[in-house]
């Protein structure tokens, strides 16, 4: 049984969104891993098939636009006024990937130094880390390495997906952007992160970016699940679960047919 209503139609992913730059991408395959596609078709996604929440943390210097980025994607709003995040905040975003419900919990952390000790307690258990910097502020790009190091202290570096995101793209000219991108790509390659450039003001690349995060996190989750269960009958529990909901669904579907 699932108390969650169907996901919004614009949160349904049927194919793998592509990376922004091939030079700095987590992988450049055209589609999902074949085993993932197969598992999804056969409803063998294990715990991912149930209410799976992936934790994503967003870190970076203060006022680079972490909150704005999340608000643009989750609420489709943009507030020009700067309002510092106190400690941490989060947003839930529900998706359906290859027919499987999947949720992201986006943890928005404070960039201010004084909240760092509080925010860092929320770093643990992240499956993806989004490090944001301002495309118009070189210093913020330089600080991303420190942010990554801090975030990785609380996490297993091998099991986490990294994204390096340049924000406020609307404020840089193409020439300035090209210069910044060169540096950013280098940093992204060094930290093995996928590079993105977005504008929360105009919305450029915001949706594409979060869809990419969702898809890659989902893929990694399902692969890990398949790995973990190994030869065991994967999805036995899920099957019961899905049968449950199927039973309910068929019942609810048949009812109106019986008494029109």
């Amino acid at each position: 049984m699932n108390i969650l209503a169907p996901v919004r139609r614009d949160r349904v992913l049927t194919e793998l969104p592509q990376c922004l730059r091939k030079e700095a991408a987590l992988h450049v395959h055209k589609g999902f891993h074949p085993r993932v596609t197969c598992a999804c078709q056969e409803h063998r996604t294990g715990t991912v098939g149930r209410f799976k929440i992936s934790k994503v943390i967003v870190v970076g210097d203060l006022s680079v636009g972490k909150t704005c980025l999340i608000n643009r994607f989750c609420k489709d709003t943009f507030d020009k006024n700067y309002k510092a995040t106190i400690g941490v905040d989060f947003e839930m975003e529900r998706f359906e990937v290859l027919g499987v419900p999947f949720s992201l919990q986006l943890w928005d952390t404070a960039g201010q130094e004084r909240f760092k000790c509080i925010a860092s307690t929320y770093y643990r258990g992240a499956q993806a880390i989004i490090i944001v910097f301002n495309l118009n502020d070189v210093a913020s790009l330089e600080h991303t390495k420190q942010w990554l190091a801090d975030a990785l202290k609380e996490n297993d570096p091998s099991g986490v997906l990294l994204f390096l995101v340049g924000s406020k793209k609307d404020l840089s000219t193409p020439a300035q952007y090209m210069l910044m991108e060169k540096d950013a790509l280098k940093v992204a390659q060094e930290m093995k992160a996928e590079y993105w450039a977005v504008s929360s003001l105009t919305g450029e690349n915001v949706r594409e970016f979060f869809f990419r995060v969702t898809a890659l996190t989902f893929e990694a989750n399902v692969l890990a699940e398949l790995e973990k269960s190994g030869s065991r009958r994967i999805g036995d529990v899920v099957r019961i679960n899905s049968d449950d909901s199927n039973l309910y669904l068929t019942a609810s579907k048949k009812k109106p047919m019986c008494c029109p």
């Binding site: 203060l62 006022s63 700067y82 510092a84 201010q112 004084r114 301002n134 118009n136 502020d137 406020k168 404020l171 840089s172 000219t173 300035q176």
Partner: peptide, 24 residues
């Protein structure tokens, strides 16, 4: 003109950030 506007916007955002840092 466009370039100057961009530069102005960038400088303004930097200023704002600096001001925020200051006020913080």
């Amino acid at each position: 003109n466009a370039e100057l506007r961009h530069k102005l916007a960038a400088v303004q955002s930097q200023l704002r950030a600096a001001r925020d840092r200051e006020s913080e």
